[in-house]
């Protein structure tokens, strides 16, 4: 598994209200969440997400359990999120919908070329190498299936 994208740097404690506000949750239309993503943080950020790898500070995805936050990130074209740590419900949600989440301490550089190998724990940011604990076999299996639902269907 190889993940590639351009870095977008974000700060610590990005909560799920900031990723997608409560006022947009009550719909079945995923494109609503994509079009309002990060609206309360930075109005222009949503336009730059396609093909990106978000490199955030600690505790990314804290707060509400809303899965729409992870769905919106994936729908907006985010390839992966890398952070020193994630809020645990967000972490489960991300993996469950097939969005790779990598726990790694690294130095972010806006727009840098990011290459990440979740199986080996290697991360390259403009050629500078960082290392992280590889994802567990179960989490990798869920990601490779495309998410938990696909994983369950394939293994039932």
């Amino acid at each position: 598994m190889k993940i590639e994208g351009n870095a977008i740097c974000l700060g610590p404690d990005i909560d799920t209200d900031l990723i997608i506000a409560g006022r947009y949750l009550r719909t079945k239309d995923h494109t609503v969440w994509v079009s309002h993503i990060f609206e309360d943080l930075d109005l222009d950020l949503g336009k730059r997400l396609n093909g990106s790898v978000i490199i955030a500070g600690k505790n990314f995805g804290c707060g509400s359990s809303r899965e729409q936050a992870a769905v919106a990130l994936k729908g907006a074209g985010v390839k992966a999120v890398i952070a020193p740590g994630f809020a645990r419900i967000f972490f489960r949600n991300g993996i469950n919908i097939g969005l790779p989440l990598i726990e790694c301490e690294c130095k972010c550089k806006e727009g840098a070329d990011v290459i990440c190998y979740p199986e080996t724990g290697a991360l390259l940011i403009d050629g500078v190498e960082f290392h992280f604990e590889p994802l567990s076999d179960r989490i990798l299996a869920i990601l490779k299936s495309g998410g938990l639902l696909q994983y369950i269907k394939a293994n039932q």
Partner: peptide
Amino acid sequence: SHSCTLGALGAFATGVGATDMAA
């Protein structure tokens, strides 16, 4: 996320998202 509230009754209680719940 606030499903942890029920730990007050001595249950192991925690929150998940929609896909986990469907599973």
